[in-house]
């Protein structure tokens, strides 16, 4: 297991380097003078030249790349042109907001998706199977923004059960430490706010989690159906184990590997920011952050945003690989 982990970590290195090269080249491929972009069109030639010197833009490109890489390793992502705040500092609350929403959405998607898939496979061709597969078909085909709006209309406007926008009750906010409000409100011992944070999370995570849930349900079902006919499931039954045990222990563990892949990919995609959901629910996440940077041509922010999302994707993939190994000894011992 240890050697497997080391191997996986080692393989990540070229991926990460490749990522930085791509992101670095993107910014250099953009036409126009960065100094002019930063200072504006009316800046004097002299002030532009000073800025170029200061930013190291007059150095050869490879030197610039290594400076960039060195800064990255120090955790320096540069500065936002718009706000003049260091990006590493500025992006944290947005990332935390996205992480909180992603985790909630994926928890919803995995719990309902996996269970619906299992029961559908177990009771194949039953009413439950037909209905859950129909629901999941509708789930994958439904536009998120429409679902989000419908949720707000029903649960906020008509029923008044859940708040329609934001992350918590702003009248009496909790001090942000981690920016994960679930944790912050617990740290502050503010159980009243914890409840409002949970309530704020429900609608956006359902909207965001519906498509992954539908995909996971279908994947789990087909994977389970395959495994349920296998010889070792028959052996487990022949041992006198209960059907529940056979399904949830012997079959599920084997069926879970392809499902794990889907969960990983979906989590990665959600972490990249869900602009639609974040916009509808006024969720201050990384998707909206980058979107705003794009609209105001804040290149350093765009660059860092892309880099962080790509990095998170790589990390999620690493985690999925490690989970494979945890589930399947044949991977672990290879």
């Amino acid at each position: 297991m240890k050697s497997y982990l080391l191997k996986r970590l080692f393989v990540m290195v070229p991926v990460l380097i490749g990522m930085t090269i791509i992101v670095f080249s993107i910014i250099h491929a953009i036409p126009g003078d960065p100094a002019e972009t930063i200072l504006g069109q009316k800046a004097t030639e002299q002030s532009k030249e000073e800025l170029r010197e200061q930013l190291g833009l007059n150095n050869p490109w490879y030197q610039q790349y290594f400076t960039y890489l060195g800064d990255l390793l120090k955790g320096d992502l540069g500065q936002s042109i718009r706000t003049k705040v260091p990006i590493a500092q500025e992006i944290m609350p947005y990332l935390a907001a996205t992480a909180e929403l992603t985790i909630a959405a994926m928890a919803f998607a995995v719990f309902f998706g996996v269970n619906a898939g299992i029961i559908s496979a177990w009771k194949q061709n039953s009413w439950f199977d037909y209905i859950s597969m129909l629901v999941s078909l509708v789930g994958v085909s439904m536009p998120i923004f429409w679902l989000g709006l419908m949720e707000q209309w029903l649960f906020s406007l008509k029923l008044g059960w859940l708040p329609s926008i934001g992350r918590m009750d702003q009248r009496n906010p909790v001090e942000a430490v981690t920016h994960l409000y679930l944790i912050d409100s617990m740290l502050a011992g503010r159980w009243d706010q914890l409840w409002t944070v949970v309530k704020h999370l429900i609608l956006p995570s359902v909207a965001l989690g519906t498509i992954p849930m539908a995909i996971i349900a279908r994947m789990t079902r087909s994977s389970m159906l395959e495994v349920m006919n296998s010889d070792y499931v028959r052996t487990a039954k022949a041992k006198g184990l209960s059907q529940f045990f056979v399904v949830y222990k012997h079959a599920l563990k084997n069926a879970f590997i392809p499902v794990l892949t889907v969960i990983g990919l979906q989590t990665g995609a959600l972490l990249g920011g869900a602009v639609l959901t974040e916009t509808i629910f006024a969720w201050p996440g990384v998707g909206r952050y980058i979107y705003e940077a794009i609209s105001s041509r804040d290149y350093p922010v765009i660059q860092s945003g892309i880099l962080i999302i790509a990095f998170l994707f790589v990390m999620i993939n690493l985690m999925v690989d490690l989970l494979y190994a945890a589930v399947d000894p044949r991977i672990r011992y290879r």
Binding site: S230, D231, Y232, R234, A238, G240, H250, N254, D328
Partner: peptide, 23 residues
Amino acid sequence: RGIRGNAISMIFQEPMTSLNPLF
């Protein structure tokens, strides 16, 4: 279930696939 694997048990043809690979 009380009989399976207890009073009557069974061995199958394919030892390669009859054991669960993950346990």
